[in-house]
Computed example of a mutant assay.
Amino acid sequence: MSSILVLNGPNLNLLGTRQPEVYGTTTLADIENLCADWAQSEGCSVTFEQSNHEGVLIDHIHAARGEHQGIILNAGAYTHTSIALMDAIASVELPAIELHLSNVHAREAFRHKSYISKVAVGLISGFGAHGYVLALEAMKQHVSH
């Protein structure tokens, strides 16, 4: 059975109320339920974590080694600033998928740079909450080969 860590970064705890014109009205709890339903139907295990603190996210990435077969990371704004998260992903040698609810390349120029992409096996961006299911499907396929 595949075990996947779904890790969410800063401000994602505010989904549903934070800039709904950009991020929609789906809450993080709604997304977790959506992913849990998918995991149950696919025979996978999914663990969810969220933190607004970079060091806590790094601790979750480190702890994933030996526990999970892959990481789906929506690092929020840390995507564009955190060399430390990039290094943590590279260090644990687990496949990671970078995920964004919005299409970051259709937004402000500073969002076009990603440190996470440099160490990720792929990127899913712009599909809202459904992007999480797309990322889970992609990770399941990636780790089964």
Rank of each mutant, 00 (worst) to 15 (best):
I83T: 13
P20G: 13
I58H: 00
V6F: 03
E21K: 14
A106N: 13
A64M: 05
L14C: 07
K140I: 03
T17P: 01
L34C: 03
N11K: 10
F110M: 08
L134S: 06
A90H: 14
R111G: 01
G9H: 00
C44P: 00
V46S: 06
M86Y: 04
L123D: 10
K140G: 02
G43S: 08
A63K: 14
M1D: 10
A84N: 05
Y132T: 07
S91G: 14
R111S: 06
V143I: 15
V121E: 11
V6W: 01
L73E: 05
E42H: 14
N13E: 12
D59I: 00
Q69D: 15
G131H: 12
A129H: 14
A75G: 13
L99G: 06
L73A: 03
E108Q: 12
G122L: 10
T81N: 08
V119K: 09
H105Q: 13
I124L: 13
A77E: 10
Q40T: 13
A88P: 00
G131R: 12
D87E: 15
T26Q: 13
E93G: 02
N103H: 11
G126F: 14
V56L: 06
P20Q: 13
L99S: 05
E108I: 12
F48P: 00
S125D: 06
T27V: 02
Y115E: 07
A75M: 04
L5D: 01
I72S: 05
K113F: 14
H105Y: 14
D59E: 14
N8E: 04
S91R: 08
T79C: 06
F127M: 13
T79I: 08
A77D: 08
G55A: 15
I71F: 01
A96W: 05
V133N: 04
A77Q: 07
N11S: 05
A96P: 01
S114M: 08
S82L: 09
E32V: 08
A63S: 12
C44V: 14
D30A: 10
L136P: 00
R111W: 11
A77H: 11
A63Q: 15
A109K: 15
A96V: 15
E54S: 03
N103M: 10
A77K: 09
E21F: 02
H105V: 04
E42W: 03
L12Q: 06
D59K: 00
N11F: 04
L14K: 07
V121W: 09
I4H: 03
E67W: 05
A29Y: 07
D59M: 00
A63W: 03
I72K: 04
Y132M: 09
E42K: 09
A120R: 09
S117T: 06
E32R: 12
H112V: 06
N74I: 04
W38A: 07
E98K: 01
K113C: 07
E32Q: 15
S144M: 11
V143W: 06
D87K: 04
S91E: 13
A129L: 05
S3E: 14
S41K: 13
A106K: 15
E42N: 12
A106Q: 15
K118I: 11
G126E: 09
L14N: 08
H142R: 07
L134W: 11
I58Y: 02
H130C: 03
